[in-house]
Simulated scan of single mutants.
Amino acid sequence: MTPRTQSPSAARELDHPATGEIRLEGVLHALSDPVRLRIVRTLATAGEEMSCSVFELPVSKSTTTHHFRVLRESGVISQSYRGTAKMSELRRDDLEALFPGLLEAVLTAAARQEGRAGAG
């Protein structure tokens, strides 16, 4: 059997679940980690795609990569390459269509929790 070669663009494509494949338990798992929730809150505030390299997170680069992969594979974010930059964007419309109000409720609760922590 001869090995297949991939085109350069195929090697740079990332796997994402189709909208209908996104599962509630996967989304809740992805949002349950404080670092991943911080990424999602940042993307929600930005309202546009952002390069992974601009996130300042309290974890190593390899752990950061893991967190972005969990978010992508669960369907919370989409990622694509722009040159050498890996860009991430919140899949807000897909999540809202599947789980109305969930993302906004999580983001609101996270903001309130942060406010309580800052007041204490």
Rank of each mutant, 00 (worst) to 15 (best):
S60P: 03
G47T: 08
T45S: 06
S60V: 04
L28C: 15
V76K: 07
S78M: 09
G47R: 09
S60Y: 03
V76P: 03
V40N: 08
F68T: 02
P34V: 11
S53K: 08
H67T: 01
L37E: 03
V70H: 01
A46I: 03
T42K: 07
P58M: 15
I77M: 10
V59W: 04
H67P: 05
L57T: 13
R36C: 07
R36Q: 13
S53N: 06
D33Y: 08
T42R: 14
I39T: 06
P34R: 07
K61A: 12
L28I: 15
K61E: 12
V70Y: 01
I39Y: 08
T63H: 02
K61V: 12
R36Y: 12
I39C: 01
R41W: 12
I77D: 06
V59N: 08
T65L: 01
V70G: 04
L31T: 13
S78C: 05
E49D: 14
L43W: 13
V70R: 11
A44F: 13
T45A: 08
H29M: 15
L31R: 07
F55P: 11
E73H: 06
I39P: 05
H29R: 15
A44C: 12
A46Q: 08
E56D: 15
V76S: 02
E49K: 08
S60C: 04
V54I: 15
P58W: 14
E48I: 01
G75K: 07
E73I: 02
S51I: 01
C52H: 05
T45K: 06
R36F: 11
S78Q: 08
V40L: 11
P34W: 12
K61P: 00
E48F: 02
S53R: 14
P58H: 14
E49Y: 02
L71I: 10
